[in-house]
């Protein structure tokens, strides 16, 4: 028996919108720790890892570990039927091949339940060890989204370089080149608007902008984004989900042949 009641149902709606273009089908894993997902895109160069901790739910019952295979497009269709202020409850019985999403309006005058078919998905879980990164950049998520969108109108790839001068996002295409430098900026009143650069070593990596733009669909989940870079590792783009967990995107860098 599984029953998860999320008062801020809009969080789940936003989570789905941020992953459904990257991954078609995924297993949602439910355990005492929380509600989680790890899935790779079809080409295996990008990965999304989601954790919504059990403490973030108003009610969290998960009698045994359960993995529920869902088509994310179908799940998104169902969650779009929930109002932004609705409380969402996810329910499933042991051994059932369906999951139920229950939507309650804040005033309790409307209650809806949507039952969705589950599917069997063969998924490969990757073990991702903790790593030391050469540079970690924290910046406003909207600023990062703007940069990725702007650069993708010029080129297909972005070079992200961190030096003591700041973080530079560069692209090149048929019509020309573009460079955007963001310097550390902690003097603003609002911490979520600051840009903080922790650099152990300078680092420069190249990524496909198509994926970066897809990751920025998570922008409504967090005011800040953290970009962790190391020369031998995939980049990690993390959006913290307030008091609940995180959504992290991993992307393999482009390397010389």
């Amino acid at each position: 028996m599984l029953e998860l009641r999320l008062v801020q149902g809009s969080l789940l709606k936003k989570v789905l919108e941020s992953v459904k273009d990257l991954v078609t089908d995924a297993n949602f894993d439910c355990s005492a720790t929380g509600f989680s997902l790890q899935a790779m895109d079809s080409s295996h160069v990008a990965l999304v890892a989601l954790l919504l901790r059990s403490e973030g739910f108003e009610h969290y019952r998960c009698d045994r570990n359960l993995s529920m295979g869902m088509n994310l497009n179908n799940m998104s269709k169902m969650l779009k039927c929930a109002g932004n202020d609705d409380i969402i409850t996810i329910k499933a019985d042991d051994g059932s091949d369906t999951v139920t999403f229950m939507f309650e309006s804040p005033t309790q005058d409307k209650i809806a339940d949507f039952e969705m078919k589950l599917m069997d998905i063969d998924s490969e879980h990757l073990g991702i060890p903790e790593a030391e990164y050469h540079a970690i950049v924290r910046m406003p998520s909207a600023e990062f989204a703007r940069i990725c969108k702007d650069l993708s109108s010029i080129g297909d790839t972005v070079v992200i370089s961190v030096t003591k001068e700041g973080v530079k996002f560069s692209t090149r295409g048929d019509i020309g080149t573009a460079n955007i430098v963001c310097r550390q900026n902690t003097s603003v009143d609002k911490p979520e608007e600051s840009t903080i650069i922790e650099m152990n070593e300078p680092v420069s990596l190249t990524f496909a902008l198509r994926y970066m733009n897809s990751f920025t669909k998570a922008t409504p989940l967090a005011n800040s984004v953290t970009i962790s870079l190391s020369s031998e590792l995939p980049v990690v783009v993390e959006y913290k989900i307030a008091e609940m967990g995180y959504i992290r995107f991993y992307l393999a860098p482009k390397i010389e042949d």
Binding site: V45, A252, I255
Partner: peptide, 14 residues
């Protein structure tokens, strides 16, 4: 340029 699969960076389990 080429991109290596994430499987070459991390290890599979489960």
């Amino acid at each position: 340029c080429k991109v290596q699969s994430l499987i070459s960076y991390y290890y599979k389990w489960g």
